[in-house]
Design a protein around this nucleic acid. Structure first.
Ligand SMILES: [Mn+2]
Ligand SMILES: [Mn+2]
Ligand SMILES: [Zn+2]
Ligand SMILES: [Zn+2]
Lengths: 158, 158
DNA sequence: TTCTAAAGTTGTAATGATTACAATTTATCC
DNA sequence: GGATAAATTGTAATCATTACAACTTTAGAA
């Protein structure tokens, strides 16, 4: 058992979560894929190779336990699958409408104080931006240019 | 045909949306339930009484058309059903974890500029808060007090 | 007004992420 | 080591949404 395993085991214990090989591997996966915000399916597919007979129910159960313990946070930026990430300092999420990639960005959410909600008990603040990522913007421009060139060629021929 | 109908028909026409009785009633429903952020099911249940044989597919189709035309906005604050509202000035959404009620609140979202996203094309900015509404806070406090009183009574008896 | 093509409506079946549940296995504590 | 509560597993169910094809209606042209 290497030192990073020991670290993960300690993490589980800190949150009063029982140890299991499945839990440790799921937690490890989240540590190794910090920025990709994986969903249950992705985690399941990846870990099935390491853990034969792994059940998808275990993935869901475990993620729920982790979220419940505050170890993991759910990112519901898509209306299809829920994505997950290790609990970290609050940040905003940008999702590309084209390729689906998610980017974290710093934002001082606590700065946002809403007078109107003085009587409300605000427990979570989520900021979700949507649009096009730099890569998809570039691809879009290239396509547009190709079309323009084609049209110009056709004009020149006539 | 009354004047509010004419207004709705004009609204549809403005967005190059064809007229239909179903569409007009769905649009009317959204006008008459501005703040409740209804979902497809709620709209369907309500309008089934007025439009016999109405299909739920029509509700979904129509809402998609409306969103596509920019007449309506989807509110994906819940990971279950999508909720809908007429397009209005951008605002934030608070949802009560207890009773599910949604409250609009003013927030200057355009004020939020993120340097990190300079290379990104941000098209939508959603701010979702979650927590307890004033009513549910009150109910919770009452329950807590009742329990405290019960405990105190038990102590006094012993 | 009548005709026609395109768009809207409907019912039913399929999809897909997530949950419910009961049997089996495992971790933790004594 | 044994008891007990908790975790894992496989399967079936749920439920919002979508796919699809037949039918109907709208809007514009003739
Ligand atoms: Mn993140
Ligand atoms: Mn709103
Ligand atoms: Zn992209
Ligand atoms: Zn409430």
């Amino acid at each position: 058992m290497n030192s990073s395993s020991e670290y993960l085991i300690k993490k589980l214990s800190q949150k009063s979560l029982r140890f299991s090989f499945q839990r440790m591997k799921i937690l490890e996966y989240l540590y190794q894929h910090e920025s990709s915000h994986p969903d249950a399916e992705e985690i399941y597919e990846s870990l099935s190779n390491i853990i034969p007979g792994l059940s998808k129910t275990t993935i869901y159960n475990t993620l729920h336990s982790f979220v419940n313990a505050g170890l993991v946070q759910a990112v519901d930026i898509e209306n299809s699958e829920t994505r997950y990430e290790l609990s970290a300092s609050r940040h905003g999420h940008f999702i590309c409408k084209q390729c689906g990639v998610i980017h974290d960005f710093d934002i001082d959410i606590d700065m946002i104080v809403v007078k109107e909600l003085a009587q409300f008990q605000v427990e979570e603040k989520d900021v979700y931006f949507r649009g096009l990522c730099p890569n998809c913007i570039r691809i879009q421009n290239e396509t547009t240019n190709t079309i323009k060139n084609k049209k110009k060629e056709a004009q020149d021929e006539s």
